[in-house]
Design a protein around this nucleic acid. Structure first.
Lengths: 200, 200
DNA sequence: TGTACATCAGTGAACGCGCGTTCACTGATGTAC
DNA sequence: TGTACATCAGTGAACGCGCGTTCACTGATGTAC
């Protein structure tokens, strides 16, 4: 149980994976500035000094964690879409799972578009996390566009961008008001509205 | 020009007002944790030590600044609504001014629902800023509900909550991607979609 | 296959820095006479 | 109205703390023979 430096190559890879895993979860939960390098390393079962053997800076890890979180979301969305009988059902399934109080409780696994958007907004443009965020949001938009109900590609993309904005906006507002009845009200209202717009 | 302690009562009030003014602007611009007490006092032309003569803690000021920012937004919305010939025009006017790149450049004066939502989301429930945020968002919702197009009050509120979510979501995403073409694309797409939904 | 040794992943003390908050002090303001 | 003095808004040094990052060190791993 005592610590012994110099670890096997396999263990090194496992350690790096553990750092990435806890980061993707904790950054979403507590924010990019709400988790220190020491917090992350400790959550991964390591000490803070070893961090810079895996990443050149916290900023670099932040970008990797953001990309991983989006990859997780994309996989989940694609799977859910594949399980539905048609496009309308797929839209409804994504909307229902997005506008869920589960995402307020388990923010560590929620969509990074809603959990990281505020932090990314204030990072300077040259930080690597911004590129990862754009790439991730673009992927989610493409999934929504692929199941949007229109013959026109531009119209489908417009629908996708609007649906994503609405879902993200509803959830960030619901999170910021999570101790108030307003939180549930906004999730319910927006879920109904989005369902209505699909049926139309 | 040299500093001389003990200032007149009028000057004390002006100083407090200056602290509140720069706070409402800087917190929206740089985030609640992106501005220190020393930054605020310096921007107000004072030194950091005097802060606690005006406020009992940074958290207290944060709540005051949040409330002031919402009050500013509510006044602006009400004025804009009053200038329009009818409810549909009022909705369009609010949507157009919200989904504007001006709000990405001049974030210090933008709606606190889009600029503070990420920070407020991570503040613990007992922090005073959360109550101020709920109150502010509720006021904006009521303005939108008052001009929504429906005979049914519940339906108007549903529309208001959805429009607010969509506008907030679009702007936080546009801000987080502001160095990328995606940013303008999402603002344009969402503006068009919201206009379409009003015309319908 | 067995032995000797160089490598290098991880450790933990230390770095400079900025944070929110406290406090002894200052001296013009505001008041009591 | 004029003078003497107590008040208290603002100053700036100092507090303890946590941050991202660096670095000398350790000793099992992985390699060369």
């Amino acid at each position: 149980m005592t610590d012994m430096p110099r670890v096997s190559k396999e263990q090194t890879d496992l350690n790096r994976a553990a750092i990435e895993d806890v980061s993707a979860r904790l950054f979403r939960e507590k924010g990019l500035n709400g988790v220190s390098v020491a917090d992350l390393m400790s959550a991964a079962g390591l000490t803070h000094g070893g961090f810079y053997g895996h990443f050149s800076s916290k900023d670099e890890l932040v970008a990797v964690a953001c990309a991983n979180a989006f990859a997780q979301a994309v996989t989940r969305w694609a799977k859910r879409v594949g399980e539905q009988p048609d496009d309308r059902a797929a839209q409804k399934a994504l909307i229902d799972s997005y506008l869920s109080s589960k995402n307020l409780v388990d923010t560590g696994n929620a969509c990074p578009a809603m959990t990281l958007v505020g932090d990314v907004a204030r990072e300077s443009s040259d930080k690597p996390v911004r590129a990862a965020f754009v790439a991730g949001v673009s992927e989610l938009t493409e999934i929504l566009a692929s199941i949007a109900t229109s013959d026109d590609a531009a119209e489908r993309r417009k629908t996708a961008l609007t649906q994503l904005s609405t879902m993200v906006g509803a959830m960030v507002l619901a999170r910021a008001t999570s101790d108030d009845p307003f939180s549930a009200e906004i999730m319910n209202a927006v879920r109904e509205s989005l369902h209505d717009s699909i049926a139309a």
